[in-house]
Design a protein around this nucleic acid. Structure first.
Lengths: 166, 166
DNA sequence: GTGTATTTTCACAAACTATTGAAAGTTCTA
DNA sequence: TAGAACTTTCAATAGTTTGTGAAAATACAC
């Protein structure tokens, strides 16, 4: 396997993994492509490289910008927009965690709060009451841990998090 | 909202959340229903309650058993199988984390290892080399943290993990 | 063994998600 | 303001996942 094959493999693999992670395959591929490209690429170049349509490329580029994983880069004298990936993996990880927290954890907390308001819950159904209470406890803790993580810097991670797993 | 409505809301909500989590909606609903049911339920009862077909109920019940989230319970004198949920939320969380780690993280580690074997990677493409190295570092750390988490007991979590987020 | 209750499988249908490509929109230049 | 270069939108289509229901398999009682 040479470097070119390795790159192709990486792009394909990131795409496949993306779908296991609830991220659209094409979005993950565009991200992978930009990650391993030293400079920036135009929408055109991305379309050609991944053999995808203009519309598809555009939609997924926008989504990556929303997630904070890539940036627009305007070159003087060029009318085209170019895109470049955030290369600091700690930043990449934080963005991904923030998005997943928003999508996966926050709706859960919201529903649990609504249910907790049910009158007489714990008198009428202690099973249900206990389940809701326990889930609430874990999800609140997970939420604050992740909140802290996404606010922290890389050194904090290396320090605290690694100490934890020793 | 009374207790019955609250329960329905919980089952629906857990189902919706499940799909944000890469879990099939019905599987999550069956799980929710069993979680808030004090005793055990037969496949029949689950079908009726959630208005789903026999085949669907059967498939998702099997999947939940695989994940270790529910157990089969055989009642003496009854030919039907009954199912009961694991109610210890710490165990539930560990099972879910273990499954997601297997599905989301392990394939990533595998691909990274394959790519690392590319000859002369770091001579020919330092950008690519750095990206692969950084992703590898983070994912190995995440993997060992989660591994530790799924092996640990609830007290460890309360102690170590909470200290970390303070 | 035979009949009955129950579970499992599987081809097909329905629902959902992603992708395309062409048309509409925008921005810049002269 | 006209026209070129480029970006965005969106209806149609392709692809994927999930659910159904009937038929096959299994387990049990007699």
């Amino acid at each position: 396997m040479d470097v070119k094959e390795g790159k192709e493999k990486f792009v394909q693999a990131w795409g496949t993994l993306g779908s296991n992670w609830g991220v659209n395959r094409t979005m993950a591929q565009v991200h992978a492509l930009l990650l391993i490209t030293p400079g920036s690429l135009s929408a055109e170049a991305i379309m050609e490289d991944l053999k995808i349509s203009r519309g598809n490329a555009n939609m997924n580029i926008r989504a990556l910008i929303d997630w904070g994983l890539i940036y627009k880069e305007l070159k003087p004298g060029e009318r085209k927009e170019f895109f470049i990936a955030e290369k600091d993996m700690w930043e990449v990880m934080k963005s991904i965690i923030a998005q997943r927290k928003k999508k996966e954890l926050e709706p859960l907390l919201k529903v649990l709060d609504e249910i907790t308001e049910v009158e007489g819950l714990c008198q009428h159904s202690s099973e249900f009451c206990n389940v809701v209470r326990d889930i609430k406890m874990f999800s609140c803790k997970a939420d604050s841990a992740l909140e802290k993580l996404t606010k922290a810097d890389s050194n904090w991670f290396v320090g605290t998090f690694l100490k934890m797993i020793k």
